[in-house]
Design a protein around this nucleic acid. Sequence first.
DNA 1: TTCTTCACGCTTTTT
DNA 2: GCGTGAAGAA
Length: 891
Amino acid sequence: MSDSRDPSDIPFPDDEREPGSDDDTPLPDGLNFHRLPPADEDLPEDTREDIPADLTDDRVFDDRPISQRASARQAPPGDGGVNAAWLDGLNPQQREAVLSTEGPLLVLAGAGTGKTRVLTTRVAHILAQRRAWPSQMLVVTFTNKAAREMRERTLALIGPEGEGLRWFGTFHSVSAQILRRHAELAKLKSGFTVLDTDDQLRLIKQILEAEGIDQKRWTPRYLASLIDGWKNRAIWPEKLPPEEGRQFAEGKGVKLYQLYQNRLATLNAVDFGDLLLHTIRIFTEHPEVLAEYHAKFKYILVDEYQDTNVAQYLWLRLLAQGSNNICCVGDDDQSIYGWRGAEVDNILRFEKDFPGAKVIRLEQNYRSTAHILAAASHVIAQNTSRLGKTLRTDAGEGDLVKVRGVWDGEQEARLICDDITSWKQSNRRYAECAVLVRASWQMRAFEERFIVTGTPYRVIGGPRFFERQEIRDALAYLRLIRSEADDLAFERVCNTPKRGIGDTTIQKAYVAARELNTYLTRATDMMIRGDEIRGPAKTGLRRFLIDMERWRTQAGDTEHPRLLEIILEESGYTDMLQADKSPQAQSRLDNLKELVRAMGQFGTLNEFLEHVELVMDNAEGSNSHDQVQILTLHSAKGLEWPMVFLPGWEEEVFPSRRSLDEQGAKGLEEERRLAYVGITRARERAYISFAANRQIYGRWTSVLPSRFVDELPAQHVDAVSETGYVAPSGGFYGSEVKSQWDRPSSTAAREDSAVFDNTSAGRASPLSPLKGGTAGGSGSGGGFRGGYDSPGWRRAQEASATRGATRPPDIEGRAFRSGDSDGRPLQRGKTPGDMLASSDPAASSGLQPGQRIFHEKFGYGRVTEIDGAKLTVAFDKAGVKKVVESFVKRV
DNA sequence: TTCTTCACGCTTTTT
DNA sequence: GCGTGAAGAA
């Protein structure tokens, strides 16, 4: 049995020989597998010393703990044929997708059609059939999370034998693995650093500064996004079309791009885009290297193919030229990352790109009820550039998709929160509910409401663990210990905590470093020996260099988690945070503790840093709590909930105005796909809502319902309006409105009442858009951003005109009303500012003077005075008294 | 060097 | 309306 070892335990490239090579001992099932190659010279010393002498030679190549080795050496499950148990639960299309192992294959997997199941079963099937060793499978995804989950699910099918699935990761992590092996071909050393966005930005800033470019007119961020875009399209500086370069600083774009690349090279660093770019270049310029990988990868599987950019496409195509066994799984209708370079075209063109490709559609949906699926399908059907699918479900009709017109974001949040409360009261869980927003500013209204009502919630997304300031600072210290030449790390921490080293000193250091052709650590060392600098800067710098040197020495004989603790202690970083009384400081300290703990899981400091540079994972994983989830539509992809809320379906919010302005029709289609993604997240219930007025960037803005509301199919929708206004055309304005409010007889009566009274008859007939409110410009708070002559406003006017609609009631309309829909009396005010008072925490949460509160920014305090929307609060921190309008939480 | 003041611009997010 | 980031003042 020892011959059935998976060669994947042996470091590449020695494991590329395939099953069936002629010099092999026959296996029990008659297939030929090759013998192991001789001992590998490249293996790190410590791994070898680890091996007990009595083990047979095959274990020499296994660097896993001994406990895991025995199981890994068993033969794969299955008999080389088809594992019936795996296939039993699959529908015919899924089965075909699993079994069509040879040649290019595109699996068009609609939302909720069991895409991951097909992918994992396919991998397991190929392994069980012994068509390839685990190490000969290349499986690429976009996120580390997806890779991890998919790997786990595959292992659950095939067992520990699949542990050799080493080429199972993101485009970037696989590229990094490849690039480390051939770094010299890209003029890099194999220990190169991978810069993240922040480093990238600082580098660009330095270059702009050096080139004397006005950074107000030409922001580093803009150049970074251009460079990113070029890299997404696999364009090197020398290949950059001149007109592209002209987009930045009067034609200096190309030069700056080149300078940036040069700078990366001298730093022995790459950015994320480079990982793919260098790999592609190596493949094209060194056919022998590409051939190695051709021989290696028998099967290639790609997840979320619709999200690939040009570089990723080229990368895949180069690799797929070998075996031609490439299987891409994706859904053109869920391509929502165009703005970061994804090309829907890649998936639309698949059959052309890979001649002889087979296309299999997965159309059986296992997630949503019929109404939900129908609504989503109807909306997405309005897109023109799509391959087209017809989703089916056996889940039954279920509830209609509920569409709600509301007055403003505050009411929207309140109604949604009420729905969630009754859901919870009917013995369901908070965690089964999700609020999906287009932009993160929309989250605030929900958080405020959830805090007031005590509804547990969790915001998903936000700054990731490794991108937080304190974590990046700590990592910079460690990077500087690893390599004293890491100038970016040096600059980041030399004055954190404050050591009196300011911009001037840093500038001097850079000049000196350039003159001496060395890095900052050495340049500053020279400087403090001379008298170019003096005073606090000199003392601070000297202290910093001495500290660094000491830690570097200690690094040799200290456990690396302990080393970080020492650094944080001795540098004064911990003291700095402890002295900081702001509420974030405590969580920063906690994060650092978490970092120290996480480091313990890695053998060496280097290992840890390598991991961190690529795997920027969100370290918060507390799924155990029963909490409502708040997240953006983008981060909702791949997830699902029984109850899904889709608020803010208003023109210019969703579809996003910028998307339309910048991308036109293409942008609109992408926004519509986002709508499709949103609706299809729901298993049982979907609630869509749009407001008449919304506060955007602190300004009251009159908004129109999203065109996507109009596109919803009437027969699958239950439309209710709190405002007396329902989307004026198409959709549920059509003939067969399946809503209890479709009673033409009462239309006339409501024409007058609806605007001012939404308590009883405030639900309009979808057949008859209501008059009322005032046309556009009359309201003080009305108007689109940019005024009534802005493109946005004109567009909205045109849209209204085509749809024969009147404007929704203005904010004034509401001010005259006597009561709100849920019985809470309105404030007397007439202006939006006064309206704000009604949603103000002081009013709605019943705060009293003397009450203890917690403020997001200022921390704990005590209310001293309440005046309308304004709270005067004495904060514990240094006894500051502040007038607070933004949200406070009662303690 | 650090504190204050004004201007700007403001999706979506991974690696 | 708010936070960031760059320029000016102490």
